[in-house]
C-alpha cells in the first residue's frame, strides 16, 4: 500500500522543480502584476492605496493608441516579412543541392546572435555617416546624400527589417523539418497528375505546412509583440517616439517614470491581447486539423 502510494507520487516529485520555477517566476509575479494594476505602489512594489481603474486610463489616451498601432505595424510587417523570406528560403534549401549542408549552417546564424549584439552591429552597418551600406550606395552613385536609416521617417522600417533578419532562421528551421516529413510519394503522385511548380506548392506543400506555420506564426507573433532588447538597443524608442513599441512603453513607465501601477496596467493589457490572439490562432488550427 505504502509502495503504491509512493509510486503514485513519483511523477509529481519529478515535476516539483519545474513547478517551483513556474510559480516563483511566473505565477506569483503575474498575480502581483494584477493587483499592482489596480493600486498605487512604490518602485519596489509596496502597497500605498487602491487606485481603481485609474492606472488603466492611460490605455484610452491617443499616445497609447498610437503606440498600439505602431506595435501592430511592427508585428504584422515583421511576421509577413519573416514568412515571405523564410518560406522561399526553406523551399530553396529543402531539396539536395551541392553545398546544402554548409548553406543550412550559415543561413541559421542570425538566430544565435543575441538581440543586443544584433542591434549594435546593425546600428553600425546602417550608420548614416560611416556605415557600410551608405558608403556603398554613395560610391555606386545610387544616392547623393546618406540615408538616415535611424531617423524619424525610416527608423520603424529599419527595426522591422532587423527583426526580419533575426526571425527568418527560426521559421526556416521549423519549415525544413516539416518539409522533411512530406512523403516522397506525394510528390511522385503530384508529378504524374501534372501538378508542378507553383500549383504544386499552392495545393500540396502549403496545406501540409499549415499546422507548423500556424504554430511558428503564433510563437513569432507573441515574441514580436513584446520584443524589447532589439529595438531598445538600436533606438531607445526614438527618434520622436517613432519606434516606441508596447514593450518600451512598459519599460519607460516602470523604470523611468517610476509608475509601477501604470506599467502593470499596460502589461496586463498586453498579456491579455497576446493570449487572445494566440488562443484563436491555435484553436482554428486544431479545428481544421480534425
Amino acid at each position: 500500500m505504502n509502495l503504491k502510494r509512493k509510486r503514485k507520487a513519483l511523477p509529481y516529485i519529478f515535476l516539483v522543480p519545474a513547478i517551483v520555477i513556474i510559480i516563483m517566476i511566473f505565477a506569483i509575479p503575474l498575480f502581483n502584476l494584477l493587483w499592482y494594476s489596480f493600486a498605487k505602489v512604490d518602485l519596489i512594489g509596496n502597497f500605498n492605496s487602491w487606485a481603481g481603474f485609474n492606472n488603466y486610463k492611460y490605455l484610452v489616451t491617443e499616445t497609447f493608441t498610437k503606440t498600439l498601432g505602431r506595435t501592430m505595424i511592427w508585428v504584422v510587417c515583421g511576421i509577413a516579412g519573416i514568412f515571405l523570406v523564410g518560406t522561399i528560403l526553406a523551399l530553396a534549401l529543402n531539396k539536395p543541392i551541392p553545398g546544402r549542408g554548409f548553406f543550412r549552417t550559415v543561413v541559421i546564424i542570425p538566430w544565435v546572435i543575441p538581440h543586443v549584439f544584433a542591434g549594435t552591429m546593425w546600428s553600425w552597418v546602417l550608420n548614416s555617416t560611416n556605415g557600410i551600406v551608405n558608403t556603398l550606395l554613395l560610391d555606386l552613385g545610387l544616392i547623393k546624400e546618406p540615408i538616415s536609416f535611424l531617423g524619424a521617417e525610416l527608423a520603424l522600417a529599419t527595426v522591422i527589417f532587423i527583426r526580419i533578419w533575426k526571425g527568418v532562421p527560426f521559421l526556416v528551421m521549423s519549415l525544413l523539418s516539416a518539409l522533411q516529413t512530406i512523403p516522397a510519394e506525394v510528390e511522385e503522385a503530384a508529378k504524374l497528375d501534372g501538378a508542378l511548380g507553383w500549383k504544386y506548392f499552392w495545393h500540396i506543400t502549403l496545406p501540409l505546412l499549415r499546422p507548423v506555420m500556424v504554430m511558428s506564426g503564433t510563437i513569432l507573433m507573441a515574441w514580436s509583440f513584446t520584443i524589447f532588447d532589439l529595438v531598445y538597443v538600436i533606438t531607445g524608442g526614438g527618434p520622436l517616439n517613432a519606434t516606441e513599441l508596447l514593450s518600451i512603453t512598459i519599460y519607460k513607465k516602470a523604470f523611468i517614470n517610476g509608475d509601477m501601477g501604470g506599467a502593470s496596467a499596460i502589461a496586463i493589457f498586453t498579456m491579455l491581447f497576446v493570449s487572445v490572439i494566440a488562443f484563436f490562432l491555435m484553436k482554428r488550427n486544431s479545428k481544421e486539423a480534425d
Binding site: F26, L30, N32, G45, I219, A222, T226, I250, A267, M271
Partner: peptide, 20 residues
C-alpha cells in the same frame, strides 16, 4: 503556454519580488 509569457511583462513585479 508559458512560452508566450514575455519578460517585459514579468520584470516589473519580479523587481518588487526580488527586493522583498
Amino acid at each position: 503556454a508559458i512560452q508566450v509569457i514575455p519578460q517585459i511583462v514579468i520584470v516589473t513585479p519580479l523587481y518588487g519580488l526580488s527586493n522583498s
